[in-house]
Design a protein around this nucleic acid. Structure first.
Lengths: 265, 265
DNA sequence: GTAAAATTATCGTATAATGATAAAAGAAAG
DNA sequence: CTTTCTTTTATCATTATACGATAATTTTAC
């Protein structure tokens, strides 16, 4: 019942990496003492973990304790360098943000999570708390909905089984049958508009990006505060997004980016 | 002589984390087989490492092998959230980028590395390869020079001993005495202009940001291609940068950001 | 300079990692 | 749907390594 099961392998590495779990926006710095208390391990052991993490660069010494290290920033850089989708999407997102004045976001699937991978600020940039790496609820908001609708059914089924409660709370269906029907409707419609669904006073519209090859689906969204959103021409925004999605899909397969010259229509 | 020494501790975690070393811009995806070959370990052991890294989210399964995982993006997000300097600097950098049309970069010290932590694109955004997480040579370019000049002497001395060759190659001094004199001159002058020092056709000017409390020094730089750089008023850019640096230093200690209303002068 | 705190070394013991082998689970082809 | 190949995990005896109480050491603060 509890998760205190005893795995036969992976004790040491998992325990050492558990240090990373401690850091969040509020607790950016931890003393060795507090880390060991949180991990329920004696000081020498905690220091050993820290030494290894520091030597890998994932954690660094700062005055007052330990914080996340440069390696994370560097690895994120490596990920961005190798990300074809991101490369293809950025100029398109930038153009959209300029044209609409909205923030323009690219979200995608990593394993069993949905994460924002890029944000281009619009005319009135929203809070800094939105940006690359922002974790997203799986069933709330425009982008996750379109992503789920575009993902393979098998993948979605697994996810649903693991989070049926959240899915129902988000009014996406009380059982798998109706959940699947909701997704089918979303897929048919091709876009979704959310008003205040994730945060009050924030509205967004999203469309899916078809994955290249066997990769996961993604979505792009235009986001702005609801007041401003109401003024905008919804149908036009959707059309722009769908055009942009097609463009990105093309660019993904065309690394020379010649498609930019002749935008898809 | 070789680095095949045998540490008494840290075998397992370090070996598992060595998987992360494999990924770079060119090799974003690795098969399990190739990973084990690179790590010189049998398949079951490699798979064990991978299982633990995947379960920590640092690595993920993709079609064709393994890639870096969402956790890295999430951790980078956490770092940005907790980074006071970044919060203070972004609006200032944005204003500078708009005003000058140059890319505007914030670089700082992490452990014994210098890393770009943020870049605001100017009128003609440079390559995507420049951006957060880009590792930098320690002794070349404007930002690193100003950072070194602003760091505590003890720290710099250690760094110099470890990289004396590079320092000399960058013409910053053939021994510690002259190196220190170079830094003192930089500190006195308060800024540095580099033309094609890191990459041909790219020029930059940087000033240091004094650290808040016991933290490390940072620098902000205006970057653009050399051709464009020559047209610009160098003295004015330096003045703007110094003003911006002061503003950031103030904002760091004044989380309410009231200082923005009354810019330092 | 001294005192306090933080970090690392020591070392016997228990335990978890290792890796050769084999079994199982998935994916691809027919 | 079955077969075949590949990928991944289980098994388990061995042994190296992580553990942790204690103490020595280094670093920091004053």
């Amino acid at each position: 019942m509890s998760d205190d099961a005893e795995p036969r392998h992976g004790h040491t590495v998992a325990r050492a990496l558990a240090v990373l779990d401690l850091f969040d926006g509020d607790h950016a710095i931890w003393s060795a003492e507090d880390i060991c208390a949180a991990l329920r391990c004696p000081l020498p052991t905690g220091y050993r973990y820290l030494r290894e993490l520091v030597s890998a660069g994932l954690v660094r010494r700062v005055s007052g304790g330990f914080a996340l290290g440069a390696r994370i920033i560097l690895l994120d850089y490596v990920m961005r360098q190798g990300d074809q989708l991101l490369k293809a999407a950025i100029p398109v997102l930038r153009a959209l943000a300029r044209q609409t004045g909205c923030d323009c976001v690219l979200s995608t699937v990593y394993g069993d999570q949905i994460v924002d991978v890029h944000r281009e600020a619009g005319a009135a940039p929203l809070n800094l708390a939105y940006g690359r790496g922002r974790p997203r609820p799986l069933f709330r908001g425009a982008a996750p909905k379109m992503i789920l609708a575009a993902q393979p059914l098998g993948w979605v089924h697994k996810l649903y089984d693991a989070h049926a409660g959240e899915a129902e709370a988000a009014q996406m269906g009380a059982d798998w049958r109706s959940f699947r029907a909701t997704l089918a409707a979303l897929r048919k419609r091709g876009c979704y508009v959310s008003r205040g669904e994730v945060e009050a006073d924030i509205s967004a519209v999203a469309v899916a990006i078809a994955p290249a090859g066997h990769d996961a689906a993604s979505a792009i969204a235009l986001v702005t505060n609801t007041e401003r959103f109401e003024i905008l021409n919804e149908a036009l925004m959707i059309a722009l997004l769908q055009q942009a999605a097609q463009q990105i899909e093309l660019l993904q397969c065309d690394p020379d980016q010649r498609a930019l010259a002749r935008p898809a229509r």
